[in-house]
């Protein structure tokens, strides 16, 4: 299940533009890793390069190595589609498939891949995923209604259910709460804490309290100026980052003396 990700000397490009440079980090299994930093420093870019979503953008590419439990994700014979099945992703804005019911949304990862399932089996997958996402009680009576008919927070949990229904080892979340109200945010934070027993979780957030509340380790990204590549400035246990960071820049950012 949950797996360790080792990143070494990772450079990430959009065409000729070097967006993120020289990242070395080891992301622990069964824990939550938070990524923080000012806007535009490459957090999303880095996150998307972990499950090869980055290269979906025309011209985008990476150099360096990302290894998950011994397997080189960018190896010559690694199928990016396979990588994404093992490393799921939740986006900033909830994006359920508008043509599908709640049920179909959850089972989408299996169905879209043409996997044949018995009704009982898929029922089971859907229920477990929805329970896992703390959504089951709210939607169990209307599984056949459109997924886009849910509230924003429910939609986001639906997207989490959809991601975990595929059975990934790692969950990447890019500002999953930024479009949500405080109540829904708390619901999702609780959910993350539950999920970390089973998954490696990496979350990008602009909310310091959130990072402090949920994560075990925190990475701080920064960039020197416009047009410069972003860098991972500091990566440490969350407690240390928020109380006694190694770097001056980290301390400035956290105490709000910055950007």
């Amino acid at each position: 299940m949950a797996k360790r990700i080792e990143v070494s000397d990772l450079n990430i490009y959009y065409g000729d533009f070097l967006a993120v440079e020289g990242v070395n980090v080891s992301i622990e299994p069964r824990s939550i890793t938070a990524l923080i930093g000012p806007s535009g420093c490459g957090k999303s870019t880095f996150l998307r390069s972990l499950n090869r979503m980055h290269e979906v953008i025309p011209g985008a590419r990476v150099e360096g190595k990302v290894v998950m439990d011994g397997q080189d994700l960018y190896g010559a014979d690694t199928d990016p589609v396979d990588v994404r099945r093992h490393i799921g992703m939740v986006f900033q804005r909830p994006n359920p498939f508008p043509t599908m019911s709640i049920y179909d949304n959850v089972i989408a990862g299996n169905r879209l891949n043409g996997k044949k399932m018995k009704k009982a089996e898929s029922d089971d997958v859907v229920e477990r995923a929805l329970r896992g996402a703390n959504l089951w009680n709210e939607v169990k009576d209307r599984l056949d209604r459109p997924g886009s008919g849910l509230s924003g927070g429910q939609q986001q949990r639906l997207c989490i259910a959809r991601a975990i229904a595929v059975g990934p080892d790692v969950l990447l979340m890019d500002e999953p709460c930024s479009a949500l109200d405080p109540i829904s945010t708390l619901a999702i934070e609780d959910l993350m804490t539950e999920l970390k027993d089973r998954f490696t979780i990496v979350i990008v957030t602009h909310n310091m309290q959130q990072a402090a509340r949920v994560s075990e380790s925190t990475g701080f990204f920064n960039l020197n100026g416009v047009g410069q590549p972003g860098r991972l400035i500091e990566f440490n246990p969350t407690e240390k980052i928020f109380s006694n960071p190694d770097q001056k820049a980290t301390e400035d950012y956290i105490s709000g003396r910055f950007g």
Binding site: E63, A76, V81
Partner: peptide, 20 residues
Amino acid sequence: MTATKTPTERPPAQRVVRRA
């Protein structure tokens, strides 16, 4: 495991495995 290629070779995006 260890890549036989030197880091300066083709950027990774160009050796994408594509399904049939």
